[in-house]
Amino acid sequence: MPRTARRAKGRGLDARQIAIVHRVAGIVLDYPGEDLIARIPDLRIAVAAVPDPARSALEGVLDHLERTALTQLTVDYVEGFDMRRRACLYLTYYGHGDTRQRGVALLSFKQAYRAAGLELTDEELPDHLCVLLEFSATQDAEVGTRLLLEHRAGLEVLRLALLDAGSPYAGALVAVCATLPALVGDEREAVARLAAQGPPDESVGLEPYALPDVKGARP
C-alpha cells in the first residue's frame, strides 16, 4: 500500500473508502446542474459505505442539494466560491495568489497528471479541487493524496472559511480532510498563518493561467 494511503488509513478509512469520499466530494463541489441533482440517489448509496465523520458530512451536502432549487444552488455557489478569497477551489491560489510563482505551481500539477497518464483539456485548470479529487479517486490515489498534502494549508483554510460562513458545502471539505493525516506542529502553524494573512496579492505573470469564473472552470 502506498505510504500516503497508509497514513490516511490511520484516520479510520481504507483505500476504497478514501476513493469514495474523494469522488463524491469532487462531484458535489462542482458547479451544480441537473446532472448533479439526478445523481444524488447513487451518491447516497456510495456514501453509505463510508464511516463517520465523512459519511454524515457528505450526507449533509447531499441533503442541501436535494432540497434546494437549482436556480438558488447556482446563485449560492457563485457567491460562496467566486466572491471570497478564502473560499477558492483553486488550491495553488492559497500559497501563491495571482503571482508568477502560481504559474510554476500549476505546471507541477499538470506534470504530475501527465506522468500518471492524464492529459487535461485547456478548459480545466489543474489545481481545481474537483479535478484533483477526481484524479485521486479514479486515476492515481498515491499522487492525488500527495498533491492534497502538499496543498494542505490551503485545503484547511478553505474548510475553515466554509465552516465560518455556514456554507452547506463545508461538509465536503470536512470529509476530504478526514481522509488525510491529522495536522501536527508546523502544519498547524502554516494553516494559522495562511488563515490570518490570506493569499499573496501580486497580480502578474499568470498567463496563460488566468483565473476563470467558477462556473466555467469545469465542463
Rank of each mutant, 00 (worst) to 15 (best):
R6Q: 09
K9Q: 12
G10M: 03
G12F: 00
A19M: 06
I20P: 01
R23W: 05
R23L: 10
A25N: 08
G26Y: 07
L29S: 12
D30I: 04
G33F: 05
I37W: 03
A38Y: 06
I40R: 13
D42E: 15
V47W: 06
S56L: 08
A57R: 11
A57T: 08
H64F: 14
L65Q: 05
L65F: 02
E66G: 15
A69M: 03
L70F: 11
V75Q: 08
Y77L: 06
G80S: 14
D82Q: 09
C88M: 10
L89P: 10
L91V: 13
L91W: 02
T92A: 07
H96V: 07
T99L: 04
Q101L: 10
V104H: 07
A105T: 13
Q111R: 15
A112T: 13
Y113W: 02
L120S: 04
L120Y: 00
D122S: 13
L125H: 08
L125P: 02
H128M: 03
H128C: 06
S136L: 06
S136R: 09
A137E: 01
D140N: 15
A141S: 05
V143K: 11
G144N: 04
T145H: 04
L148F: 05
E150L: 09
H151A: 09
H151K: 09
V157P: 05
L162Y: 07
L162C: 12
L163H: 14
Y169G: 06
G171T: 06
A172C: 10
L180A: 09
L183V: 15
E189L: 15
A190N: 10
A190W: 04
A192F: 07
L194M: 15
P208H: 02
Y209S: 08
A210F: 00
P212T: 01
G216P: 00
G216K: 08
